[in-house]
Design a protein around this nucleic acid. Structure first.
Length: 461
RNA sequence: GGCGGAAUAGCAAAGUGGCUAUGCAGUGGAUUGCAAAUCCAUCUACCUCGGUUCGACUCCGGGUUCCGCCUCCA
């Protein structure tokens, strides 16, 4: 039985889908005005893992991850670049897709863009006004009236009076309450805009997600995810909007992943302490980043450091090493390992413990390798299968080890093979000096040789 | 100030009222021409102070430190 930590109740709860066997899940995606950094990578990987596991558990999952392609930062950045905002967003959407692909993220079933849902957004704003939850200011902005929604604060555990005492926002004269947030923003002369009953403008950020999620999944769906920082105000406001507009419960399970940190501080654009995904890909394989993210529980903070990526690299190499040279042909799996793996994943997606099962399998493969080929095959098939549930170990081991990392200048494979061949001859001739010379030379280029019997394999480290 | 989360060995990171987590690194051994990989063994733990208990790292209470949200943010 799967249990999920629900941010709404701050407890682990048994997961029961609205419709048996089906899961409808929405995750807040990127605002596309810049390259994705490791914090974004974490959201992508974490919820990709969730989807993969739910599917492996037999659920029919509909996964929606939106793209925010109109907002203040996008407009500002487009102005700075002196280009149309849609040119800017198209470029960063493409970059995001490249990063996601590298990280072995399965594409979501739908990837709605805010600009393509303008009609639905405007309708939802109009519904909110009609139902008395929103009002238009004199300047053409439309605001959500926070105190009209009785349970405002239920997700983040905040009370209106606490929010007021901590008020840090400059007071806007058009709002009747400083806590009210904008649903529709009137456009300044040169800004991109859409026609609406309140004049030309664009949607507020929160309403986009309410409109896109309910359009794609219905008024009431199972799981809504995103980074911890979206819990308030973004997701709180989504609840207020959607439940007020539809009169139905919005979401059953809220999932929030923890931050990526640098030196114990949140990695973020505003702090400037971020590493983009493609920056890190110059030094490490994408799968190593994925492993690094999955080695911690999704709700824990995750510190970023080179040394930790190095450790991830070594760990992943251990798993791939165990699979090397095994042609997986059978489909029989080791039931005990599968059960342990599922038990771990059923406890709120405990990937760290699930990975421990993979390492135990690697150990079993290495142990039985020479004595019991049948057992080895079963363990290897299990390792490969369970790795796949996490989106790992899908490469051919030899290709994994021979693939060059990032943009590093790598010696050509043919050249390496030639030197390896030369060394084998030297070994045959008992010319140890020459053999070691070649090995040392290759080691300097990051190539590690491994002799086994009459054969020698190599890998990049 | 309000709300929430976290403190585990050299570094990461799970978990449990009494039984080896796991990975990386270290040490000893096996293997190897020597290495690497692998196998076996092994050293380093549970922030602090009280309490409950036959027994607590694990439960309860106080404290300390750190982080996040309360403003755009994954």
């Amino acid at each position: 039985m799967l249990r999920i930590y629900n941010t709404l109740t701050n407890k682990k709860e048994e997961f029961t889908p609205i419709e048996p066997g089906k899961v409808k899940m929405y995750v807040c995606g990127m605002t596309v005005y810049d390259l994705c950094h490791l914090g974004h990578a974490r959201v992508l990987v974490v919820f990709d893992m969730v989807v993969r596991y739910l599917r492996s558990a037999g659920y029919d999952v509909t996964y929606i991850r939106n793209i925010t392609d109109i907002d203040d930062k996008i407009i500002q950045r487009a102005n700075e670049n002196n280009e149309d905002f849609s040119v800017l967003t198209a470029r960063f959407i493409e970059a995001m897709h490249e990063d996601a692909k590298a990280l072995n993220i399965l594409p979501p079933d739908e990837e709605p863009k805010a600009t393509a849902y303008m009609g639905d957004i405007i309708k939802m704003v109009a519904d909110l006004i009609e139902r008395g939850y929103a009002y238009a200011g004199d300047n053409g902005d439309v605001y959500y009236s926070v105190n009209k929604f009785e349970t405002y604060g239920k997700l983040s555990g905040k009370k209106l009076e606490d929010l007021r005492s901590g008020e840090r926002v400059a007071v806007d004269v058009n709002k009747s309450d400083p806590l009210d947030f904008v649903l529709w923003k009137s456009a300044k002369p040169d800004e991109p805009s859409w026609d609406s009953p309140w004049g030309k403008g664009r949607p507020g950020w929160h309403i986009e997600c309410s409109a896109m999620s309910t359009c794609c999944l219905g008024n009431h769906f199972d799981i809504h995810g995103g980074g911890q920082d979206l819990q308030f105000p973004h997701h709180e406001n989504e609840i207020a909007q959607s439940e007020a507009a539809t009169g139905e419960k919005f979401v059953n399970y809220w999932m929030h992943n923890g931050f990526v940190r640098v030196d114990d501080e949140k990695m973020s654009k505003s702090l400037g302490n971020f590493f983009t995904i493609r920056e890190v890909l110059k030094e490490y394989r994408a799968e190593e980043i994925r492993y690094f993210i999955l080695a911690s529980h999704y709700r824990s903070p995750l510190n970023y450091a080179d040394t930790l990526l190095d450790a991830a690299q070594s760990s992943l190499a251990r798993l791939y090493t165990s699979l090397r040279g095994i042609e997986i042909g059978c489909c029989e799996l080791d039931a005990e390992s599968v059960a342990r793996f599922n038990d771990a994943m059923n406890e709120d997606f405990n990937t760290a413990e699930a990975l421990a099962v993979l390492f135990d399998l690697a150990n079993k493969i290495n142990k039985t390798r020479d004595s019991d080929p049948e057992a080895t095959m079963t363990y290897a098939a299990t390792l490969k299968h369970l790795g796949g549930v996490l989106g790992l170990l899908e490469d051919n081991p030899d290709e994994f080890f021979k693939s060059s990392v990032g943009s590093a200048e790598a010696a050509g494979a043919e050249n390496i093979d030639r030197l390896v061949g030369e060394r084998l001859q030297a070994k045959k001739d008992k010319n140890w000096q020459r053999a070691d010379e070649i090995r040392d030379e290759l080691r300097l280029e990051g190539i590690e040789l491994e002799d086994n019997g009459a054969q020698t394999s190599w890998r990049r480290v």
